[in-house]
């Protein structure tokens, strides 16, 4: 933690960066994302096990971009976010300085995206045990059981779009559900409208999801919706050997064709 503060202070003093995006104390023992712009505020930065939010979501935010060059305190999912955003032309190469936190909790600075790629080649954050367990449970279900499981879960969705807002890959400035000419997806929170939204979201993230699980954590009614995108990324890996967020120039999985692509999903 001291390393991060020291380095953030240096960077801000030297005006290498204009803002350090990191975590700070919030109200009632909770943490929140903070945006440090003055060297003297660097001491507000913290990093501990409560810092689970994928703050990569702020990298594409208008107000944050406005500050200028950014450094970000980055856990492994945030690192993947940076590379994936770069692949998708939302960040320019080496636009963001990564103050990385390894899986072991060590501070490691990444001066370039190339160094990030090298680091991530050694492995990424595994799924949590509870996610693995639930995923295995869902995998073991028959198709009708699975359908019942998800329709029951998704019927609770209130369509607050916290999943969308918290996802760093949902950076569209107008989401297709917000179109009404034509209306692609039913607007209100109805059973079918909820299913449409979540399936579409999973499809749009297939091959792009960096497995941070933020959508599931953000959900105010505790739906395990992150498993939908996890599953889609698993399929992308199996079928197209594509893993998002490991390279700053990954060709988009679903919009590129390779002659040796498996076609066994077409039935």
């Amino acid at each position: 933690m001291e390393d991060i503060r020291k380095r953030a202070k240096q960077l801000l003093e030297a005006k290498t960066v204009d803002v350090v995006i990191g975590y700070g104390e919030g109200y009632g023992k909770k943490v929140k994302a903070i945006f440090v712009r003055k060297p003297e505020d660097a001491d507000k930065l913290i990093y501990d096990e409560r810092c689970t939010q994928n703050i990569g979501v702020y990298l594409t935010k208008h107000e944050v971009k406005h500050f200028g060059k950014a450094a970000i305190v980055a856990s492994v999912p945030v690192m993947r976010t940076i590379l994936q955003l770069c692949s998708e032309n939302q960040l320019k190469e080496d636009d963001v300085l990564t103050l990385g936190i390894t899986l072991e909790g060590k501070f490691l600075e990444f001066p370039t995206y190339r160094t990030l790629e090298n680091f991530l080649a050694n492995g990424v954050q595994p799924l949590t045990e509870s996610d693995k367990e639930l995923m295995a449970k869902i995998d073991a279900m028959s198709i009708s059981e699975r359908w019942n499981f998800w329709t029951a879960e998704l019927s609770k969705c209130i369509k607050c779009y916290a999943c969308r807002s918290s996802c760093p890959m949902c950076y569209c400035n107008r989401c297709m559900v917000d179109y009404n000419q034509p209306q692609w997806v039913s607007v209100p929170s109805t059973e079918i409208g909820n299913i449409e939204w979540h399936l579409m979201r999973a499809m749009h993230l297939a091959g792009r999801c960096v497995n941070c699980g933020e959508c599931g954590r953000a959900c105010p009614v505790d739906l395990p919706i992150h498993l939908l995108t996890f599953k889609a990324s698993e399929e992308a890996k199996i079928n197209f050997s594509a893993v998002a967020g490991l390279s700053m120039a990954m060709p988009s999985t679903l919009s590129t064709y390779k002659p040796n692509d498996k076609e066994n999903f077409i039935k």
């Binding site: 994302a33 945006f35 979501v57 702020y58 369509k159 607050c160 779009y161 969308r164 607007v187 953000a218």
Partner: peptide, 22 residues
């Protein structure tokens, strides 16, 4: 600054009454 602009707060609020007509 750290608000991500979702509707979770309004949807759980007992006093928020905004609605859309479609």
């Amino acid at each position: 600054l750290h608000c991500i602009g979702c509707g979770a707060c309004a949807y759980v609020c007992p006093a928020c009454a905004c609605f859309d007509i479609l």
